[in-house]
Structures are given as structure tokens and as C-alpha cells.
């Protein structure tokens, strides 16, 4: 059916399968092709559709192989590997401090939480949890709270967008900018901060940061 299992294009009828079954939707990759073949041979109202990873609602990170009977999805198979970048393998070849650079990229909405979780684990492994300065811990919490706000604003904004309320989206993203400006002032970057490190932080708050947060 398909000579390459890497081919992610779907919905195109292969020339050799134009037969009495009607149109065959090709879901390539492993046994997914077999499912399509089976569905077609049954000659029912049932079709198998590939949804994503290029579908707008999956924004490139999820692929669903849907078995559809009329309007009803009767089976869904998920391809979730699109976000796997081998961070763990890369970190085997880096120092603990360099690992933060990867952790901050694990989630583009809450990078600081990922940095903090990683650093807390490293500190626990090294047995230096009690040596982290109190000020560093407080600044970590402050950064995470700011980051939580920006993340939740995106959740609300995109939630509105999904139901067609585009004003909710623009308002949410507008308010998120306020937080991102604060994070930029404190860490130097809007995302990919790598600001929390095992043992504390990269540096103290810059002058005027507290006033800006207030």
C-alpha cells in the first residue's frame, strides 16, 4: 500500500487501490495501513481518517488515527512522538547546570516550572537542598507564580479561541505580554530562560524588578 512508512501525507488515494470499495484513505505507519485496508474491504460507512500532525487543532504535536462510522468516532489511535526530542539522551552528555537549558525547552508555556522541578531533583540527589539560599527559593516561587499566570492566560485565551470567541484570545495574549515583559526584565528572555540552576539562580533580581512586578 505504501512503500514508505515515514510518509505522513494522508487522504490521497493510491492508484493501485482504486477498486470497488470506493475511496481508500491511507493512514501510513505500522499496522495503520492494515486498518485502512480492512475498513475498505468491509464496504461499510466506516472510514479511517488520519488527523494531524498538521491539523490546526493538533498544532503539530499529535496525530490521531480515527475510525469513523458515519459521524461517530469508534476508535482513535494516537501518535504522540512528535514532541520527543531525545532530551534525556542529550543530557547524559552534559553537566547538571547545562541540563537546565534543555529543561526550559520542555514546555513553552511554563519553562520556569520545568527548570525548578529539575533543579529541585538535582539538589535532592546531591544533598544540597538545605544549602539553597532562601532568597533564591523566594525568587523561584515569584518567577513560577508569574509564569503560572502567563500559562493560564494562554489556556483561557486558546480555550476561547476553540469555541470561536476570538476576543478572548486577543485579550488573553495581550495580558500575557505583561508577564512576559516582566520575565524578560528579570531573566533576559521571554522564554527559554535557563534562569534557575541547581543550587539557586543564575543571578539576583535586576534593579527595579520588584517595582515592575508590583
Amino acid at each position: 500500500m505504501s512503500e514508505s512508512t515515514i510518509d505522513a501525507d494522508a487522504g490521497i488515494t493510491p492508484p493501485d487501490s482504486a477498486s470497488a470499495e470506493g475511496r481508500v484513505f491511507t493512514a501510513s505507519g505500522g499496522d495503520w495501513a492494515d486498518i485502512a485496508e480492512e475498513a475498505a474491504s468491509l464496504g461499510e460507512e466506516r472510514i479511517v481518517v488520519n488527523m494531524g500532525p498538521q491539523h490546526p487543532s493538533t498544532h503539530g504535536v499529535l496525530r490521531l488515527i480515527l475510525e469513523i462510522d458515519g459521524e461517530t468516532v469508534t476508535e482513535a489511535r494516537c501518535g504522540i512522538g512528535y514532541l520527543h526530542t531525545g532530551i534525556e539522551k542529550s543530557m547524559e552528555f552534559r553537566t547538571w547546570t547545562q541540563g537546565v537549558t534543555f529543561c526550559t525547552r520542555m514546555d513553552y508555556l511554563t519553562p520556569l516550572h520545568n527548570e525548578a522541578a529539575y533543579c529541585l531533583a538535582v539538589e535532592k540527589l546531591l544533598g544540597i537542598t538545605d544549602d539553597v539560599p532562601e532568597r533564591a527559593s523566594i525568587i523561584r516561587v515569584l518567577l513560577m507564580e508569574l509564569n503560572r499566570l502567563s500559562s493560564h492566560l494562554v489556556a483561557l485565551a486558546t480555550g476561547g479561541m476553540e469555541i470561536g470567541a476570538l476576543t478572548v484570545m486577543t485579550v488573553g495574549f495581550r495580558e500575557r505580554e505583561v508577564v512576559l515583559h516582566l520575565l524578560e526584565q528579570i531573566t533576559g528572555l521571554r522564554m527559554n530562560h535557563a534562569f534557575i540552576r541547581p543550587g539557586g539562580l543564575v543571578q539576583d533580581l535586576p534593579p527595579g524588578a520588584i517595582d515592575s512586578v508590583r
Partner: peptide, 15 residues
């Protein structure tokens, strides 16, 4: 028991 993160036809176990 099938692959979940790597492509279905990937040889080896990368971690």
C-alpha cells in the same frame, strides 16, 4: 506493546 515515541520502523532502543 508497540513503539509510542519513535517511528514504528525505528531500529534500536535509543535510551
Amino acid at each position: 506493546l508497540t513503539r509510542i515515541e519513535m517511528p514504528d520502523d525505528w531500529p534500536g532502543h535509543p535510551q
